[in-house]
Write a protein that binds this DNA or RNA. Structure first.
Lengths: 233, 233
DNA sequence: ACCTGAACACCGTTCAAGT
DNA sequence: ACCTGAACACCGTTCAAGT
């Protein structure tokens, strides 16, 4: 709901058309993907079924198979749509390191708004959305002056970190939306850890868990990698 | 099959008991988890259904629900079993940096042998297997002398990199087992990239794709991280 | 050509009935 | 107490029949 206005703030794009506009015109791949995103945002990954999607589109069950091969391809297109807005919107900062930070944060915020993207990106490395991320990171590393062979390692490290961190975030604290619920989630997790293991390192980590900031920690990880990349020459 | 002998080499543990041993004695949670691992290793994540599992155990459909809450909990226990062997077996090297490398490689090799673990770890950050990884990394970072607040960021970065990289690897090249198939997979992916995008950076990356070594690249990522951590003090 | 919706071949989970 | 297996409420996908 207030998600809609976030599109504009986050990535400088207009929001998708309202869900009950133009419901009588012809079906197309684009309309189907758009509807899938609406259902995913409203009800989560488990809420997207062929039945819920075709109900939302007011059409028959088999109709979508004239435009998409299967549900897997539909999810890949939906994720590519979201990621494409980020990579297109993240304009090149003069400083390539800063461009990488902005790109990473753009992906983080997009997955915060569309958690189903986080799990989808881990499903198939060859999908278009993942390719977009590889390409964006790769071009910034080139601008940063990282030479060819080292660039593949650096790009791999950064992309895999971003995908891993956002997948964990999407599957975890992000799932609970309201702030009180989030605090309860973290308090509960901290209590379970602390009870499960008396090791002082666990007790210490658990005590800091409820107050930590996921987004800041994600960015700190990006900076650790940037330091590692530039320190190696 | 030859996977069995890898258990011993990889993590110094004895392999699970053969699948048709002791089929007549009582069901238990341990036996069910063991059977689930056998089915997952033999037929992949999609091959584990309540029906295939109970057939493998020669029991009724509902019997397992007396010992496990649901399939999600069963997968979490199976993954914890595999990860537990790695974290228990990865003895502390004198050098904490080297301990971290060995731990990361142990997880990589375990997921190479059991790809379903890679996707399972991304599903729920609070599951026991993920906790084990956090704890092992955290204690090595402590030995490395990384102070409290920085340690949370460093641990988060490393754990999320490991989870992200192994999840991508498990979902991608690892899926194709034989070497010729693997080469065909990478050739095909490189061709699709090259055809899809004329950008020189993509052409260059695609040309290097077929010859790259996933395990070496994974380790290079760990080293980038370690450099980033130590360079920051 | 595009769409419909019943039919098909599956799922995970429950629960009355057995031992 | 533990186990059985039919029943339940779902899935994604196909395909003959319609327009």
């Amino acid at each position: 709901m207030d998600q809609r206005s976030n599109y504009v703030k986050m990535i400088g794009m207009t929001p998708p058309t309202p869900r009950n506009a133009r419901r009588s015109d012809a079906l197309s791949r684009g309309r189907i993907v758009e509807a899938a995103i609406e259902v995913l945002d409203a009800t989560g990954e488990a809420g997207l079924t062929v039945r819920s999607l075709t109900a939302h589109l007011s059409t028959g069950r088999g109709a979508i198979y004239h435009h998409v091969a299967n549900k897997e391809g539909l999810l890949a297109s939906a994720a590519d749509d979201i990621v494409g807005r980020v990579t297109a919107g993240a304009g090149d900062d003069e400083d390539p390191e800063q461009s990488i930070r902005l790109l990473a944060l753009g992906i983080f915020d997009a997955i915060d708004a569309h958690p189903w993207v986080g799990t989808q990106l881990s499903r198939e490395p060859g999908q278009p959305a993942v390719f977009r991320i590889w390409k964006s990171i790769g071009s910034q590393l080139q601008r940063l002056g990282v030479p060819g062979p080292a660039r593949a390692d650096a790009g791999s490290a950064l992309v895999n970190y971003i995908l891993g961190a956002t997948a964990q975030y999407a599957a975890g604290p992000r799932r609970v939306t309201s702030d009180p619920d989030r605090k309860a989630y973290l308090d509960d997790l901290a209590a379970r850890w602390a009870q499960h293991d008396p090791d002082p390192i666990v007790q210490d980590a658990a005590s800091h868990l409820p107050e930590h900031d996921d987004r800041a920690q994600f960015l700190a990880g990006v900076d650790i990698f940037l330091t590692g990349i530039t320190a190696r020459g």
